[in-house]
Amino acid sequence: SNWMHKRMLGLSVRYAQLPASQRTDAMRQCLYAAQANDAYWHGMFGGLYLPHLRRAIYNNLVELEALLDQCIPRAAWYQEDTDLDGTEEIHLQNGIIQIILKLDGNASICELDAYPLKHNFADTLTRQTEHYYRKIRLNSGANPAHDQSGIASAHDRVSFKHEISHADLEPDLDAQSLFIDRLNGESLHYQLQPSDRKNEIIFQAVASIGLIRKCFQISGNRLRVTYACTNEVVGRMQTEINLAMPSCDGPGGRYVKDHIALSGFGNAVALDDLASLTLEDDTLGGNLSLEISPAAAFHACPHFTVSQSEGGFEKIMQAAKLTLAWPVTTRKQHITLRFDKKR
């Protein structure tokens, strides 16, 4: 929520700096809608844990940014500490898509915007320990009767909308971003490298005695991520891509391969060698296509968090977690995400 809040404040400043003659009703409407407080807190009656509330904020932030860019264009590539946490981020955008990467050594994407779709695909939620987990553990799935006279407060009542296991309460080791890498199960530490091109960001990691080069490139409505390993690197590479899909585990979203729907986003999918896949989402008003060259092992599953609501403790899907794995003998691995708006 800190990231979302600081993004909203940054766009608010940009709007305020515009000459009055350039400010439009559409901009003001987007700004006010992006300031709706519901998604900025976490409590009994919704807030940050409800993906549709955050999505409404980001829909308006992404639309506002596009409107502001039409008046005063931004650089294609720039670096700043957007969320004021002491670690800088790199922004790379071309007016159609934008990627933002935190320079924390992970070389992963913390925001991925498709402007025509008005959507941030990195609007996921990282599972962390919450105070009410203690109540869940104490009651471990049981629904004890309220043994006092009178009506129990919604804050005191213990009830379960869904069955919750101890595994559902385990905190995430990483922020649920896009392109979190492991080599033979170990995380990598990337350093930013210079690049002559304005449409790419290059990182490099030292692995044993070899090097892994990771390049992000945007072109039109495509984001291409390329991994290149030197001959000394051995073993298996894996990357995790956490995607915020608006339909979550509802009926409006599905994985589609060769024009055949495999399953909804709420189910797990495993394929030994995948070259292309489309994530169709009715709520999104468009599709996200994945192209993998050479083909790689693929696994997808829903990522849930546990929150408390009036109806009891519940599991809510926050992201479609895609994992790709390949042997480093491939040397060069390309992963392309393409964003298409429905006509």
Rank of each mutant, 00 (worst) to 15 (best):
N2G: 10
M4Y: 10
G10I: 02
L11D: 03
S12E: 06
V13Y: 03
A16L: 13
A16E: 09
P19R: 12
P19F: 09
A20V: 06
D25P: 02
A26P: 00
C30I: 02
L31I: 06
A34P: 07
N37K: 13
D38P: 04
D38K: 08
M44I: 08
F45M: 14
L48E: 04
H52P: 00
L53E: 10
A56S: 08
N59Y: 07
N59R: 15
L61V: 11
L67V: 01
Q70R: 15
I72F: 04
R74H: 09
W77E: 00
W77L: 13
Y78G: 07
E80T: 02
D83K: 08
L84E: 14
D85T: 06
T87D: 02
E88P: 00
E88N: 01
H91M: 10
Q93N: 15
N94E: 10
K102E: 06
L103Y: 00
G105T: 00
A107I: 05
A114H: 15
F121Y: 12
F121V: 14
A122Q: 06
A122I: 10
T124S: 05
R127E: 07
Q128N: 10
K135M: 13
L138S: 11
L138F: 09
A142K: 04
N143K: 08
N143Q: 11
D147T: 00
D147N: 01
Q148K: 03
Q148Y: 03
I151Q: 04
S153V: 04
A154T: 12
D156K: 07
R157L: 15
S159R: 15
I164R: 12
H166D: 14
L178Q: 11
L178A: 08
L178C: 09
I180W: 00
N184C: 10
E186V: 01
H189N: 08
Q191K: 09
L192K: 07
R197H: 13
E200N: 15
F203Q: 02
C215I: 15
S219I: 13
L223V: 11
T226I: 13
N231C: 05
E232A: 14
V234I: 05
R236S: 04
Q238C: 00
T239M: 01
M245L: 13
G252Q: 08
G252V: 11
K257W: 00
K257T: 03
H259A: 11
D272F: 03
S276L: 04
T278Q: 06
T278P: 02
N287F: 05
S293W: 09
F298N: 01
Q308N: 12
Q308D: 10
S309K: 11
K315A: 05
M317P: 06
Q318K: 14
L322R: 00
T323P: 00
W326V: 06
V328K: 12
T330V: 07
T330K: 05
I335P: 01
L337F: 09
F339N: 14
D340C: 05
K341M: 09
